[in-house]
Simulated assay, not measured.
Amino acid sequence: MMSLTCETGAPDGRPFLVQQEGRPGPAMKPALYICFGMAKSGSTLAFELTSAILQAGGVPQPRLGDGAVAPGARINFRQAITNAHLRQMLHEADLLGARPLAIKTHGGVWGDMERAARDGRITGQVVVRDPRDIACSMLDAGREGRAWGMRDGVPITSYEQAMAHVRGQLAHVANWRRILPDAPVIGYEDLAFRTRDSAALIARQLGFDVDLDAAIALATSRFTQFNKGIAHRWRHEMPAEDAARYAEEFADFIREHDLAPPNA
């Protein structure tokens, strides 16, 4: 298992991770690890797995202050990360010296995020789900009056209404993949039903050889946001006409990310 220590030695005085004598490991890590996910894609589980793997690898994951993450949030989460949020996140990460700190977001790429990626200050992952399942989740939320299923205070009640929001989600995916070309892309079905494979992928990217079963146990013990847990739920819930429209509209995305059911 890797063991890393923090020292101050970068030209600008920022702390960075150095490997201990006789221990394998990277000499430096980005300050932030962005866990971007489409809404209702299993991104909270991906974040918790990432956080647990980092902790198992010797990188503490303290909650940042409310100026960086959402006030009242239990985890390091921001729906959308503005320039001000990003500056505060990087500042606090530098002061803490723990690298990288996992941050969950559903928002797109804004402002200085691209430069931070170019400068090696951030890395991350991209979590995706079939657009048809995302739309089913939106209608669930609309029926229950939750914010995710509302637009301008009015519940979303049709797949036609949901389609515009789904397009926006796909645009976010494209932008995160553009600025983080080496980020692993993890599908909902892999997270939900092949969790160990997803954890192994994240651990390889981070460069940590940790006890994956222990990391998964820690992640799931504090995981509190559950989807219905049904693979390709749109097949049972979405009318055939709407399913056909979504399949045509988002064919490239579904094919590129291998999101179609195995026997589709």
Rank of each mutant, 00 (worst) to 15 (best):
W176V: 11
C136R: 10
R177Y: 05
A183P: 02
R167P: 02
I156C: 01
T157K: 15
W176Y: 15
Q161L: 03
L170N: 07
S137M: 12
I186Y: 09
S158T: 14
R177K: 12
A183T: 05
P181Y: 11
W176F: 14
A183L: 04
E160Q: 12
A174M: 06
G145N: 00
R151D: 01
V154F: 03
H165V: 07
L180V: 10
Q169R: 13
C136L: 12
H165L: 07
I186N: 12
E160L: 11
G168S: 08
H172Q: 14
G145W: 00
H172N: 15
A147N: 02
P181I: 07
V166A: 08
E144D: 15
A147D: 04
G142N: 14
M163P: 01
I186R: 11
P184M: 08
V185W: 07
E144H: 13
A141T: 00
A183H: 03
A174W: 01
P181V: 10
V185F: 04
R143A: 14
R143L: 10
W148Y: 10
V166D: 06
I156K: 01
E144S: 13
D140K: 01
A171D: 11
W176D: 10
D182Y: 00
E144G: 04
M150R: 00
V173K: 11
G149F: 01
E144V: 02
I134N: 13
G149S: 09
R177I: 05
E160P: 01
G149I: 05
G149M: 09
G168I: 06
A174S: 15
V185Y: 04
R151H: 10
V173A: 12
G149Q: 06
V154A: 12
G149A: 05
G153W: 13
A135W: 13
S158I: 02
R151I: 06
S137I: 09
Q169P: 03
A183S: 11
I134L: 14
H172V: 11
G168M: 11
R177S: 10
W148V: 03
I179S: 12
R146A: 01
I179G: 07
V185M: 06
R178P: 02
P181M: 10
G142P: 11
V173M: 10
E160F: 09
A141W: 07
A171C: 03
V185H: 08
I156V: 13
R143M: 12
A174K: 13
G149P: 04
G187N: 02
Y159V: 03
D140T: 00
M163I: 00
M150V: 05
A162L: 08
W176H: 14
W148I: 02
H172R: 14
G149E: 07
V185R: 09
V166T: 15
G153S: 14
A141F: 10
M150F: 00
L180E: 08
R151P: 01
G145R: 01
R151Y: 02
D152C: 07
L170W: 08
P155W: 04
I134H: 11
A162S: 12
A147T: 14
G168D: 09
Y159C: 05
G153D: 12
R167Y: 04
Y159A: 03
D140Q: 12
G153M: 14
M150W: 00
R146H: 13
R146P: 01
L180Y: 11
G187Q: 02
L139V: 15
A171N: 10
P181R: 11
R177D: 04
L170H: 05
L139T: 15
C136V: 15
V154L: 10
A174L: 09
W148P: 00
A147H: 02
G187C: 01
S137C: 12
R143C: 03
